[in-house]
């Protein structure tokens, strides 16, 4: 049998060879991919070398199960979760507010929103964290109209600095996501709502945002999972999240790799769990739409292999 030519490609008649002059059966030989084989072997060799190195190195793998449920590590996990969830809440509030501000007709609000995203997306998160942590250099005291005053350096604990740093930064990214979601909703929708007598705010809340969610949720899930991992930056301002907890242990016993592995396992575990949540949420906001959602395997692949921004 001869492979079909372009014109007949995919048509069953072509595959049976009926339309062809050649009636003698011919053996089909796929293109030999020597290069692929060579590359595969090379990859295996490198892998074997790395695995051997890790296996022969002075790493006590048997310690890892114990560390996984170590009390300080578990506290670190709890802190990481707490920080991530709260920072996401701050980010969501700021992000939605900013996105809605960008859509208003008020030029002052639009300007403020634009400036905020520009500033916080334009500077590295790590730098922002350090600035929040050292804010007492700029503002000695925090006071509310002279009614209440407190020194900044007692207020700006590592946790508060980490929360604000991560949350405010996240808000700037979420704003863009929400905005693209809002823009994706057909103009006819707000028009229909307006024609029914719905004011702008109600239209946004009941008509535009719920539809924007379908576009917003997938990238938002990615943001959350990225945030989970970025929360490890709080380590630098000595907040005892997961990485810092591990750090505290290995600075005394030098089981560095064992503890970093422990930390990695926890991050992968959390990422996987939240990916499942993300999947469920996406199904829910897809109401009324027939577009299939991505499979869990694809989601995991994206979340675990995402590039840093």
């Amino acid at each position: 049998m001869i492979l079909a030519d372009e014109e007949h490609f995919g048509q069953p008649t072509a595959l049976t060879g009926k339309t062809n002059d050649v009636s003698v059966p011919v053996k089909v030989v796929a293109v030999r991919r020597y290069g692929t084989w060579a590359l595969g072997l090379a990859v295996l060799a490198v892998l074997a070398f790395v695995v051997r190195a890790f296996a022969r190195a002075n790493i006590e793998y048997s310690l890892i199960p114990g560390y996984l449920v170590n009390r300080s590590i578990l506290t670190g996990v709890a802190h990481t979760l707490e920080l991530t969830l709260l920072a996401m809440a701050v980010g969501l509030a700021l992000g939605v507010m900013t996105a809605v501000m960008r859509q208003t007709h008020n030029p002052v609000l639009r300007g403020v929103a634009l400036g905020y995203t520009w500033l916080f997306r334009g500077t590295p998160l790590l730098v922002q964290l350090l600035i929040w942590f050292n804010l007492s250099i700029v503002f000695k005291n925090l006071s509310f109209f002279g009614l209440y005053s407190t020194p900044m350096n007692t207020l700006m604990t590592p946790f508060v600095a980490a929360l604000l740093g991560l949350g405010v930064n996240e808000g700037a990214y979420i704003a863009e996501i929400v905005r693209s979601g809002i823009i994706s909703v057909d103009d006819g929708q707000s028009e229909a709502a307006a024609a029914l007598g719905m004011p702008q705010s109600l239209t946004m809340r009941r008509v535009v945002l719920p539809q924007a969610l379908r576009v917003i949720v997938p990238p938002l899930g990615n943001e959350f999972i990225a945030l989970l991992k970025y929360s490890s930056l709080a380590y630098t301002i000595s907040y005892t999240e997961l990485l810092q907890s591990a750090n505290k242990i290995y600075t005394t016993n030098f089981k560095v790799i064992e503890l970093l592995f422990t930390v990695s396992i926890w991050y992968i575990l959390l990422t996987t769990v939240f990916t499942v949540f993300q999947q469920i949420l996406e199904r829910r906001v897809g109401r009324g739409h027939t577009r299939p959602t991505e499979g869990i395997g694809r989601r995991l692949a994206v979340n675990l292999m995402r590039f840093r921004r």
């Binding site: 057909d186 006819g188 929708q189 028009e191 229909a192 709502a193 024609a195 008509v207 719920p210 539809q211 109401r287 009324g288 739409h289």
Partner: peptide, 11 residues
Amino acid sequence: MVFQRFNLFPH
């Protein structure tokens, strides 16, 4: 008001 493209709320 009734529109050419219906503009029902799909959600």
